[in-house]
């Protein structure tokens, strides 16, 4: 009620004129809109128009899809500029088994895609143990690459050629092959047959064609 407001509100709101509005005792000052408020509001509106013009009506190359494509290209260059595109054959896998940097690369790929079935360290889980000498679908080193590419066992092992770059398949194959002989204990009984050891590394380098050429 108005009695309440007769305690001269202007005492602490110097220069603030009251409107003649009153609702259930609530009154309203006729204060102007704060300048900083109005300027930021106007500024945000101007920015909005400029932003829209720049990004939606502006030159090509600023779109999300374009920016993404650029980042993919840059990433491919960063990763594979030195090695080109590889094929997951026995000699290539064997070569990269000797390279610690690329093994680490394979390990990361393995961690992102393979651990849910083969266990964190390849000890097996839903899928077979990869650290022993027994293999279900591989008889030779090159088969590791083939199985990763195309899958195996009625889809129990999915095909990865749609999901991984060919080089990633090579590196993950090299990493998987490098696990052999650790003989970690997993939840599953050994599966498949014992296969001959991988070929010796030193014999290979001469026969490897320099990739990427």
């Amino acid at each position: 009620m108005s009695e309440h407001n007769q305690t001269d509100p202007q005492a602490d709101q110097a220069g603030s004129p009251l409107t003649d509005h009153e609702y259930d005792g609530i009154r309203e000052y006729d204060n102007p809109i704060p300048g900083w408020w109005a300027w930021i509001f106007a500024g945000s509106c101007i920015f909005a128009v400029l932003y829209y013009m720049a990004y939606q009506l502006g030159t090509a190359g600023t779109s999300v899809a374009q920016a993404y494509d650029n980042s993919v290209t840059a990433n491919l260059l960063l990763q594979f500029e030195d090695i080109g595109t590889l094929a997951p054959d026995e000699s290539t896998i064997l070569k990269y088994m000797q390279d610690d940097d690329w093994l680490l690369f394979g390990k990361q790929t393995f961690a992102g895609n393979c651990v849910s079935c083969h266990g964190k360290n390849g000890e097996g889980l839903v899928g077979p143990n990869l650290t022993d000498d027994q293999f279900k679908n591989a008889k030779r080193l090159g088969d590791i690459g083939t199985v990763i590419q195309n899958g195996a066992a009625n889809g129990a092992m999915p095909a990865w050629n749609n999901r991984l770059h060919p080089n990633e398949i090579v590196m993950v194959a090299a990493y998987v092959a490098s696990l052999r002989g650790q003989n970690l204990t997993g939840p599953r009984a050994p599966e498949g047959e014992i296969i001959p050891p991988w070929p010796d590394a030193p014999a290979i380098p001469d026969t490897v064609v320099e990739p990427g050429e």
């Binding site: 407001n5 509100p9 409107t19 509005h21 609530i26 009154r27 000052y29 006729d30 509001f41």
Partner: peptide, 24 residues
């Protein structure tokens, strides 16, 4: 807008701001 001026017994700061910020 109802309960704050009731509880403080103070007038609303700016009627004009009410209009502008409501519509915007």
């Amino acid at each position: 807008y109802y309960f704050l001026p009731k509880a403080t017994d103070r007038p609303i700061f700016s009627y004009k701001l009410s209009i502008i910020h409501f519509w915007s």
